[in-house]
Amino acid sequence: MASLIGDLIAAVLEFAFWAAWEILPALCFFTALAVVFAATLGKVTIERRGGRIGWTGVPRITRSPQGRMVLSASLGVIIGFVFWVIVVSAAIIFHAYQS
């Protein structure tokens, strides 16, 4: 019985890590898409080509024919991740010094 419960816990944890690994890049990408567009008033954008959004890829910065700077999707994921790290850190610090 104990091994069954241990296997169930291991399966749930494995599923949670898999889901986080698949969902986190998309969350970071769409966060960066909104934050970068709003912060630069539309002068910088993140490319949205059909493909897989992920951590890997060549982080590159190009310029479009319209004059906008275009960041690669992987660079967008990194920017979004940094944004969420700052938000969570600020929330933890604010909560720690609240009392």
Rank of each mutant, 00 (worst) to 15 (best):
G54D: 08
T56L: 08
P65N: 04
G42N: 00
T31R: 02
A2E: 15
I93A: 12
Q98E: 08
T56E: 14
A11K: 08
G42H: 00
D7A: 10
F37M: 06
L8K: 07
L4Y: 13
G80P: 06
I5S: 13
A11M: 09
R52A: 10
V70D: 02
R52V: 10
L8S: 13
H95S: 08
L27M: 08
C28H: 01
I93H: 10
G67F: 00
C28G: 00
I5P: 11
L13I: 12
I46F: 01
G42S: 00
C28F: 01
L41E: 10
V82K: 04
A16K: 12
I61R: 03
W84L: 06
I79H: 02
T40S: 05
Y97A: 14
G57T: 03
E14Y: 14
W21G: 14
A39W: 04
F15R: 14
A19S: 10
P65Q: 03
E14S: 11
W21C: 11
P65V: 03
V88F: 08
V85P: 07
K43W: 10
I92W: 06
S72H: 00
V85H: 06
C28R: 00
C28Q: 00
Y97D: 12
A38S: 07
L71R: 00
F81V: 03
G80H: 02
I5V: 15
R63I: 10
L4W: 09
G54Q: 05
I93M: 11
V58R: 12
V58C: 07
A39E: 06
A73C: 06
G57Y: 01
I46M: 02
F94Y: 13
S72R: 01
A20P: 11
R48E: 07
A10E: 09
A96T: 12
M1R: 11
I23K: 11
P65A: 04
I86D: 05
Q66A: 10
V70F: 02
I92V: 13
A91V: 10
I86Y: 04
T31S: 07
R60A: 13
V85W: 06
A73V: 05
R49V: 08
F94H: 15
K43H: 11
A91R: 07
P59M: 02
L33E: 09
L4K: 10
E22T: 15
L27P: 06
A20K: 09
V44M: 03
P25E: 00
R63K: 06
I46C: 01
S64L: 02
W18P: 13
I53F: 04
A73K: 04
I92H: 05
T62P: 03
R60Q: 09
A90L: 09
